[in-house]
Design a protein around this nucleic acid. Structure first.
Lengths: 395, 395
DNA sequence: GGGCTTCTTTTCCGTCGTCAATAAAAGAAG
DNA sequence: CTTCTTTTATTGACGACGGAAAAGAAGCCC
């Protein structure tokens, strides 16, 4: 195994410094005055926080002198130097591992995929280590060092403890993944639920920037949901939240693997759609791609399946909006390949079922390449790095 | 109009002091060491925070020396002196006003009810003023002074601005109620949504004490829901949240006044139940009380109506649990008069529809006398008083 | 080159909370 | 009856942090 570089500590000890850095990270180049206003702090505090960050190379002065007002001393915006530090993000599914190398601004610099050799902890860890090694080489070529590794797993994950409590796809229970991976890779490791990781990425680097209340809904094999309330990602008292996939939208609907009937996932999940398309056409349909193709060829009955799926998703989103009143809902996921097939139904069902001001919620779709999941994992690593609450690799 | 007493300022300027006071308020008598542990502060901080609070009379040393361990210096617990300050809580419905006088510990000391003379702002304000005056007299008899007034109104309320954005029952739009009432009564006024006010009361003085994630579901004329996430009451980006009443539980269900079908409220709201009981029995049924009576007399078809209502409520609660993963759900409201008629169904439907760990959520029912709504309003006033973010009466 | 405006930095200061040492209040031991 | 032990509370020194205000800096305009 390659020896990873020594890990630095981030020179933002105080809450204010951390907050200012995050503000600049999310809102791009900012003058000190603007940063102060955005973070609700005094300009003096910004100067004090920024200085060590510039000295350490995490921030740089931006000499973009355009659109400057003609009067007064020119502003001196600062921005994050993305190349200053690199991070790894790994998404583990039931079949494969997707890994990305990102910079500090969470831009993807390299990526790798690897089919899963086996689902036992040992095998998965070995596969992760292999991809990590490859990406560490890419990092060397970029002339920067990797400061953390984020791993995203679907299921019940305790981020604080770095433990995968239960993963249905991997059939894992109480696996201390952060500790294990830290020992294997020699990097600080953050482990989180995949949808929450994606939500963090949206919150810091995507369409959730600056919003204190929003939701991310992922449409794919499952239907997931990440929630941000009061500016924080919701984890629930028992580590599980955002199970929009198992919100009942039709008590008379099809049975779901969860034991209930008419869950969103039982109508709009990938498996459910494939099953319904098969039933409607009487043809062999292997996967979602084929189902979409049939729909686009206007095979009778297929579009109706997607319409029903869109309706279920729209109702689910309306439920979230009615309960939490988010400012925005970001719909994402592999399932958006079929976007044109149900976008209208999502919108209609949402509008119909959203109550009062909840309808003012902004619903947008955002196509999501699969690497995005891994990028989410990297975002959690960046978050941990900045908050300096890294679980130290214990070896 | 009686001259109300001058308003004091609460001697807990620092966040830590405020937090320690709140901790003692919610958790009853606490030794300084315990309070420190609970609030996550040093014992020294507690001593410093407690001293001025004792001097000002808000805290008193409790000399309850029972169950003391036999060794070491005896602990010296402190508790809040409820009688030190009084508060008024007013709940305004479409028909009447309920007002309570509480002490600092939010114990009800006196209460009044008054049918609404009219629904226009002027008339309602006059009625509020009348009840406030009466209760200020009671306050004099108790030998303490009133430090704030809380008003709870159903609908879309902006607490920070003290404005009722929209109240369907009163047909109000953008009424600056806090300012108006402050001028009329000469007290600091806090205005909040009624369900949120009740949630605050549960959070500080009820079954939500010590929980960072829980929900309050009210069953009555409407079905409401207050949410606490990350220890804070959720208000939503547009001021509306917790609309569990308009979560769809059966797309084939009865039409709701909100324009949708199969909302929880359209099945389990008071009006819906009365309508269904009428249809099932063919009898004249005036209100919920009669409907409950019919059910208790085992009139055919009536119990089924309640069973359906319980199922709808249970599903709604399961939806909340699936999305937010609260630690507890507190079911409350006037509708609980029919508690025995649907408690079983609520529980069954919840268990069936709750996914994974969400089912570990603790669902409890809590009968709620109508004054409790007004007590919730008082709780918001207490909260404002302690946080010292009182909107000053501007006159 | 002053004057003006706006952004940034510096210096000083008050606040707050922790640390570590000390005091206090018992019962237990001798 | 004194001293020790144990636990709780208080004190005072200290350091960190962020704000206020004033000074400095860097342009444009005349």
């Amino acid at each position: 195994m390659r020896q990873p570089p020594p890990v630095e500590t981030f020179p933002a000890n105080t809450p204010a410094a951390s907050q200012i850095f995050t503000t600049v990270l999310s809102h791009g180049p900012l003058t000190r005055l603007e940063a102060a206003r955005r973070a609700g702090l005094s300009p003096a505090a910004v100067t004090k926080a920024v200085k060590p960050l510039i000295e350490a190379g995490y921030l740089v002065e931006d000499t973009a002198d355009e659109g400057r007002p003609t009067l007064g001393r020119p502003a001196n915006p600062v921005r994050v130097d993305g190349g200053r530090a690199l991070f790894l993000g790994v998404k583990v599914t039931g079949d494969e591992i997707i890994a990305v190398l990102t910079d500090l601004c969470c831009r993807i610099r390299a990526d790798r995929r690897l089919p899963l050799a086996g689902r036992d902890t040992r095998s998965v860890l070995a596969d992760i280590a292999r991809l990590v090694d490859e990406l560490l080489l890419s990092a060397d070529e970029l002339g920067s060092t990797v400061q953390g590794l984020g791993i995203a797993v679907s299921g019940d994950v305790d981020r604080a403890e770095g433990v995968v409590r239960y993963s249905p796809f991997l059939e894992w229970r109480d696996v201390p993944l952060a500790e294990l991976a830290a020992m294997t890779c020699g990097l600080p490791v953050t482990v989180d639920n995949d949808v929450r990781a994606l939500t963090v990425a949206e919150q810091w680097f995507g369409e959730g920037v600056g919003l204190s209340d929003f939701a991310v809904v992922t449409v794919g094999a499952g239907i997931g949901c990440g929630l941000v309330v009061h500016g924080r990602v919701v984890s629930g008292a028992h580590g599980v939240a955002g199970e929009i996939g198992h919100v009942t939208v039709d008590p008379a609907g099809p049975a779901c693997h969860c034991g209930n009937r008419g869950c969103v996932e039982a109508i709009a999940g990938e498996a459910a759609i494939v099953r319904q398309v098969r039933a409607a056409t009487g043809r062999q349909v292997a996967d979602a791609t084929e189902a979409v193709a049939l729909a686009h060829r206007a095979v009778p009955g297929v579009r109706e399946v997607y319409a029903r799926a869109g309706e279920a998703i729209g109702r689910g989103i309306a439920t979230v909006a009615n309960l939490l009143g988010p400012e925005r809902v970001i719909i994402s996921g592999e399932g958006l390949a079929a976007h044109d097939l149900f976008a209208g139904q999502i919108r209609d069902a949402f509008t119909a079922a959203a109550f009062g001001s909840a309808a003012r919620c902004d619903v947008l779709t955002r196509p999501l390449p699969f690497e995005e999941w891994a990028r989410g994992a990297a975002a959690t690593a960046i978050q941990s790095f900045i908050s300096s609450d890294h679980p130290q690799p214990s070896r």
